Amino acid sequence: MSDDLDENPRAFLDVCIGDDGPTRRITIRLFHEDTPKAVDNFLMICRGDAGSINLTNPNRLIRLCYSGCTFHRVVDGFMIQSGDITLNDGRGGMSVLDQIRDEEFVGDPAEEKTFEDENLGWKSMNEAGLVCMANRGPDTNTSQFFITLDDCSFLDGKHTVFGKVETGLDVVRDIGKVKVGENNKPVEDVVIVDCGQYFPESPQLKSHHQPPPPRRPRSRSPSQRRHRRHRDHHHRRRSRSPRRHHSRSRSPRRHKRHRDDDEEEYTRDDPDAEERILREEREREGRRWDNMPSNSAADEPEVKFKGRGTMRYRERKRWGGAGDSYGRLN
């Protein structure tokens, strides 16, 4: 017997009770090692792998899938039954093992496609939530199945047990309590709105998607902390906006000049301001040279040389004119 949760596939049925009821999920663990044919048949129908077929009685195209099927028989305290993928009323159903797509069937498809019982009695039907194949006698398994609501051990050896409800047993019990009419058919439809194979997330995959743990701060020596502070300070200084370095030129358009009280105020809108300021500078330089002491020969310093008498040293003076860059001899 195979009860290993990791080696068996799983399937899900999304069920809606009534027209306005919420969609609720039932997940089923399948015993593939013990009942491989029943499990393969059930999974192919859940996934819709068998495609569609054209029926001639009645004449219509149907999809071989549990989606859209109803639970056509409900007996409280016993079981709930579904899986009629051809007629959806309990009279049909078919096996999809070795199914050829778009195959045309004549007559009742339930009599055309069946498969034999397998491993009868390997598991007792003594609990709720067991998923079993429904049949009309030995070796007449189609697509119909039922889920037990209580101990049904009186059916041991008559039906193939191929799965067990893993989650959603409360949904199964709620279906068992719906109001039914003739032939135990629910008054309100209980519909399988979606189905398929269920892949639970493995612990390895779950841990792979988790964010990494936060990194612990690394302890640093005092010298390393000083180096880090110096580096951060240097980085902040470089990241500031560069300062504007003003030119040291004496252009009247960039700097304000000190003038005497009698000078006219400089304005940028005056077109003759630059010429006027240059003229004022020349006049100011001329007044400065006029106030200096005279450079006559009597006032020049005397330089005495041994054995040669007295010589006069005539110093070279700079001229403060507007266009001259060198002085002249007096």
Rank of each mutant, 00 (worst) to 15 (best):
S2V: 14
N8L: 08
D14T: 12
D14L: 08
C16E: 13
D20F: 07
T23D: 09
L30E: 01
V39M: 02
G48Q: 05
G51P: 04
S52W: 05
N54C: 04
N54R: 13
N57A: 13
Y66W: 02
S67F: 01
G68I: 03
V75E: 05
F78C: 02
I80D: 00
Q81G: 04
S82V: 10
L87S: 12
L87E: 08
E103D: 11
F105C: 12
E116F: 03
E116C: 13
G129A: 07
M133H: 04
P138S: 15
N141K: 06
S143A: 14
Q144S: 07
F145D: 02
F146C: 01
F146V: 02
T148A: 05
L149Q: 01
D151C: 08
S153W: 00
L155E: 02
H159P: 01
K164A: 14
V171P: 03
V171N: 04
R173L: 06
G176F: 01
V180G: 00
P186K: 06
V187L: 15
D194M: 02
C195K: 03
Y198K: 03
K206D: 08
H209P: 01
P211W: 04
P213S: 07
R216N: 05
R216T: 11
P217F: 02
R218D: 01
R218W: 03
R231N: 10
R231K: 11
H234A: 15
H235D: 14
R237S: 10
R237D: 14
S239A: 15
P242W: 00
R243Y: 00
R248Y: 10
D260L: 13
E263M: 09
D272I: 09
L278E: 12
E285K: 15
E285F: 08
R288I: 14
N291G: 10
N291Y: 07
M292V: 15
S296D: 15
A297N: 09
A298I: 09
A298R: 10
K304C: 10
R314I: 15
E315A: 13
K317A: 13
R318Q: 15
S325W: 12
